[in-house]
Design a protein around this nucleic acid. Structure first.
Lengths: 139, 139
DNA sequence: TATAATACAGACTGTAATTATCTATAATTA
DNA sequence: TAATTATAGATAATTACAGTCTGTATTATA
């Protein structure tokens, strides 16, 4: 069990948008170049973020993508849920059961993680860094 | 991202062992019958639990599997780690980075979940139920 | 010692999810 | 109308997961 690459990309992309807030629209190509992934694939991820209302898109000249929520309000959880969906990590697979005590514990555990991810905003992590070094800064 | 079925099975199996503690060895066939999965596949899962020192195995007549740790000490985390391994859920995939602030947050989030899963013992959940109803009891 | 009962290991297969690409289409601006 | 942009759909490649098959090793007991 691991987070998908798409979630990985999405977090980096959103960190970028939070950083860039207010400036011009960003279009697909430059983002793809910067992140070193194919434009069409990136486009799929961006579309998911649009559908989750985290960013907005505009076609045509001078179009592109821009942040929709206030930059202070985008949480890690928002981004993760946009990509991974909202299903629980653990669902009891046993045939005959409707109410599983193991499952209840597993959900509670997941909720501990989720609570933290909801509280934690991207801006907290992004503020100090330049875009390209989202992943470079020393502790 | 979801927990694997193997983890699902493993939790149910270990709940069974905790419940059964002290009684005779359990051999593959009866467990497989009870859980409705194929013996060879079950065997793989049990072997992983053996390697993680949660249960022990004995070949030959009157052989089988039995609990190794004290029944009060088996945590959800023990079982999950035995199957899923110990890698982090999130690993920064960007090329040029060694130290990623996003990753740090994601690990911290995961740790919140792990801490809970380490504290929570199987016996807490199993005590009230009969084996076959690990998943049946009403709240 | 022979046999039956058991666990273990490796190769293999099928299926589903993820990752990614390609092509075509729609919308907008100038 | 032409250029620039996003979106959608089909499809392919890769990987992880779930499961099976076959054979081997170990132990108890008759």
């Amino acid at each position: 069990m691991k987070y998908t690459k798409a979630t990985n990309y999405a977090l980096h992309i959103m960190a970028f948008f939070v950083k860039q807030d207010g400036r011009d629209n960003l279009s697909l190509q430059p983002i793809a170049n910067h992140m070193n992934i194919s434009p069409t694939y990136l486009s799929k991820i961006l579309t998911q973020l649009v559908k989750a209302d985290l960013i907005q898109s505009a076609p045509g000249m001078n179009g592109g993508y821009s942040l929709r929520k206030h930059k202070n309000e985008v949480s890690f959880f928002d981004v993760i849920q946009a990509i991974e969906g909202s299903g629980a990590l653990f669902t009891c697979e046993m045939n005959d059961q409707s109410d599983c005590s193991l499952e209840r514990v597993m959900r509670e555990a997941e909720n501990h993680m989720i609570t933290y991810l909801k509280e934690k905003k991207l801006i907290e992590v992004v503020a100090k860094n330049s875009m390209s070094s989202t992943c470079k800064e020393k502790v």
